[in-house]
Design a protein around this nucleic acid. Structure first.
Lengths: 327, 327
DNA sequence: CTGAAAGCGCTAACAA
DNA sequence: TTGTTAGCGCTTTCAG
């Protein structure tokens, strides 16, 4: 492996001169040319570890994701990536596999790697993790949940629930069904439902509630069961995945959407285009979320952690497609 | 930031003693206890950069992916991750955004980070990239394409094509349609088609061919056009995404699957469960691919690059679902 | 414009 | 078992 030292020897200059050459320090035209040649011929590449050690910080930003196949996470990643690439910041992506222990391990790992900041896609957060986050000497940015005094970035889930209920009401529906998930999940299980109920009740609609899981397949099975028994003319599923499970079950049972029943989701995942009719949903600005977070990270990297907003809420939008209709 | 030096001072021992303590060297029970306490109280974490610099290699493995939202890539990543986590190897995932230039940059970047090996999800490979790969002092493992003298891992796409054609023939179909992609893509555009044609022709089936793109939406639009005009009783789409586009178009046009026409894909993505009926496909062992590659990487990390297989081909399997039927 | 020297935090001979 | 010393590859004063 060719090092800066080797280059210096070959060029008969000192290491500092080579270092200056690499880092745009002042250097004579003559030595510059000499070094140009040698560096090119040897294919020399500076050792990033040594650079970072010297600087006591790497130029990386750590990102902790819950799993590789989350549609929303990947959209956010895309946004993060677009900004970080532009700004020449390297990402170090680590996976927790939805495991709380691995989340903690990954934070520690990234700290040991001296990343400049950490972006954490939050799922479960317990007391210990919260403490770890608060004690971190490296700034940690939370996506999807809110922690006091930490820069947190969330979506307006409560609003989203209201938006869907409003849509149902405006379409003339009075008998509603909300297919939700466990209240352990605050954003999806609590906020969306709460917003939905509030608007629905205010408009004197009747609401049934059924709890299911996050997976399409589980929702599908469950739907085969409950669909024949419900009275609702409008089904609001708590996620697009759940909506697709329901949609599949409807197809199986010969229930047609939106003629027999209207159906909507939350998320705006592109997979909702994979079922026909496409599903009405509330679109979340995932990729924009990534861009916003990364810009904030860069700001902190440049100017320090002062005056940083602790909470950023992103707006969501109704996207009406073929699965809902007026009655 | 607390360093090993600090710990040494606080404990009144030398740095090497602390280092030994951390790395399971022999140490007296007494100093061990003393250090236990101090390390715990200070929350000391070794600087990974310094460790890696010293070792002239980090304990990381670099992974270069084409994009964040590729279903197959994410499945493979899952397999890679399961093994690397088990073996305590940290992954450094970098994205190329399907950009050849970024692919080259990422290789260079990972080399500068002194990763132990690089796993490259290959898309486009030009002469320059091939040269870069061959000259790399760090072993590079290629997934999805074959490069001479580099450990390459591919799927049996040619076989896959034959399997699908055989299935169609066995179901009694004689009028076939292959909806493919550009031949620039060797695996999908050439091999799958070639295998399909070979078996079909041997069995005197007639074959129509239509070229489309990789995206579901483009295939959907295109299908609206060609579906009314075709004579085939069996449509073989070159990917699951294309198959879903076709399936959606059929729904739109009132063509029912599999009564009016049989339809199959390639890939085995879980999204084929999102349309009803589920689509017959050839399942690719994505996550197994990841495990196999990572195991090979570890082998090389442990024992060096000798005697390593240059080519590994993974078997694929027919998965018959509701979208194809006997006539 | 250039070089000598110190040091980032850690590990690993080698001696004691 | 422990300490001393040197050095991984780089950057950055400080002199010259």
């Amino acid at each position: 492996m060719v090092t800066l030292s080797d280059i210096a020897k070959m060029a008969n200059v000192s290491k500092s001169t080579v270092s200056r050459y690499l880092n745009n320090g002042s250097i004579s035209e003559k030595t510059k040319k000499k070094l140009d040649k040698i560096v090119h011929e040897t294919g020399y590449q500076p050792n990033a570890l040594a650079q970072s050690l010297k600087a006591s910080q790497s130029n990386m930003v750590g990102v902790i994701i819950p799993r590789y196949d989350s549609t929303s996470t990947n959209q956010v990643l895309k946004g993060i990536d677009s900004i970080s690439y532009e700004k020449n910041i390297q990402l170090m992506i680590t996976n927790t596999n939805l495991n709380l222990k691995r989340t903690k391990e990954n934070i520690s790992l990234l700290q040991r790697q001296k990343v400049g900041a950490i972006i954490l896609f939050a799922t479960e957060i317990d007391k210990e993790l919260e403490k770890q986050i608060k004690l971190s000497n490296i700034p940690i940015f939370i996506i999807g949940q809110q922690i006091n005094n930490c820069p947190s970035f969330i979506y307006k889930d409560y609003e989203a629930g209201k938006i869907i209920a409003k849509h149902a009401i405006e379409q003339g529906h009075k008998k509603l069904l909300f297919v939700g998930v466990t209240e352990k999940d605050y954003s999806v299980g609590v906020l969306r439902k709460k917003g939905f109920y509030e608007v629905a009740e205010k408009n004197n609609a009747s609401i049934e509630f059924i709890e299911t899981g996050f997976s399409r397949s589980y929702s599908y099975e469950k739907s085969l069961d409950f669909l024949p028994k419900i009275k609702a003319t409008y089904i609001a599923a708590a996620t697009d995945h759940i909506a697709i499970g329901i949609s599949n079950a409807c197809a199986k049972l010969g229930i047609s959407i939106p003629e027999d029943v209207s159906l909507s989701g939350f998320g705006g995942y592109s997979i909702i285009q994979n079922v026909y009719p496409h599903i009405t949903t509330v679109t979340y600005p995932f990729s924009q979320m990534g861009e916003i977070v990364m810009k904030r990270v860069i700001q902190v990297l440049d100017k320090g952690t002062e005056n940083i907003d602790k909470l950023t809420e992103l707006q969501v939008n109704l996207n009406v497609q073929g699965s809902t209709k007026k009655i």
